[in-house]
């Protein structure tokens, strides 16, 4: 994609993309009970399994030269993975269903919205959905006393940035997969390794150095870093590097996703 192409793409996005965001929000609230239950219940299951189970074996872990309770260590990891899963699965499976099975986009682009508006709306909605789930999960986790406020409140606006990144990543795959089953591949090649090896369930410094280097390339590692520090009630200066990484990666992924979707749909 040339620089001029990027400019044209950005200019084709308008505030009308909020109409698509509103449409997806309306669908979400038609079925709000089934949408809000998992993020409330899921952390309780994880905290029971990991807290009471593994936590009985591993009481505390050493994290950044300080001992942290094991459940307090994994709770922010759960929030980070929640944002990733919600945003990524929204712009992969759900966007694919709207695009291919429901033909929703074909209908919307006959109105004053451009395809770029529609895709921007999809990205914004996936971001929002990730953030809603994260916030709901924070409520559940807070009952276990595992988040330090007021710092932890910053996790909510931060999850918008994290959600946008994973939404953009998902849209890139939706732009190229031949069929809906094909999402298994990126899920097992990217999402599951990130889920397990991004410092979500154990501190990365127990890994050999080469593995740590790889882990530091994964976006979820940086998302987990930021959420963990905020959850533990700290704001060290080196969070700036994590933020910089995410801020640099999210917009290009989103633009590439829109570009690939346009290439796929406009024929």
């Amino acid at each position: 994609m040339s620089l001029a192409g990027v400019g044209a793409l950005v200019r084709s996005v308008s505030l009308r993309s909020m109409r698509v965001w509103q449409r997806n929000r309306d669908v979400y609230f038609v079925t709000w009970k089934t949408n809000l239950f998992p993020p409330l219940a899921e952390p309780i299951l994880y905290l029971l399994a990991f807290g009471a189970g593994i936590g009985a074996l591993v009481k505390e872990v050493e994290y950044r030269d300080r001992m942290v309770g094991y459940t307090a260590f994994i709770a922010p990891g759960l929030l980070a993975t929640q944002v990733m899963f919600q945003a990524f699965f929204e712009t992969t499976y759900n966007t694919f269903v709207r695009m291919h099975y429901q033909r929703t986009f074909d209908a919307i682009i006959t109105t004053p919205l451009s395809l770029e508006d529609v895709m921007a709306g999809e990205l914004l909605w996936a971001t929002t959905k990730g953030t809603i789930s994260c916030a709901v999960m924070m409520v559940a986790i807070s009952f276990f006393g595992l988040l330090h406020y007021p710092h932890a409140l910053l996790i909510v606006p931060f999850s918008l940035l994290a959600g946008l990144l994973f939404a953009g990543l998902g849209l890139c795959f939706t732009g190229v997969v031949p069929q809906i089953d094909s999402f298994n591949l990126p899920t097992f090649l990217f999402i599951m390794p990130m889920f397990l090896f991004s410092g979500t369930f154990f501190p990365l410094d127990v890994l050999p150095l080469w593995a740590q280097r790889i882990a530091n390339l994964l976006p979820l590692t940086h998302v987990a870093n930021v959420i963990r520090e905020l959850g533990l009630g700290r704001m060290p200066a080196d969070l700036a590097w994590d933020l910089l990484y995410l801020v640099a990666l999210a917009p290009p992924l989103c633009l590439l996703g829109i570009h690939l979707m346009k290439r796929r749909l406009v024929k």
Binding site: R19, Q22, V27, R103, T104, D106
Partner: peptide, 28 residues
Amino acid sequence: IGVCQQEDNLDPDFSVRKNLTVFARYFG
């Protein structure tokens, strides 16, 4: 313009009426 396409692309998640009001929103 108003377009009625060949394939069914109504919004299955909405009621009959909501299909129209959501579509009206795309036109502002």
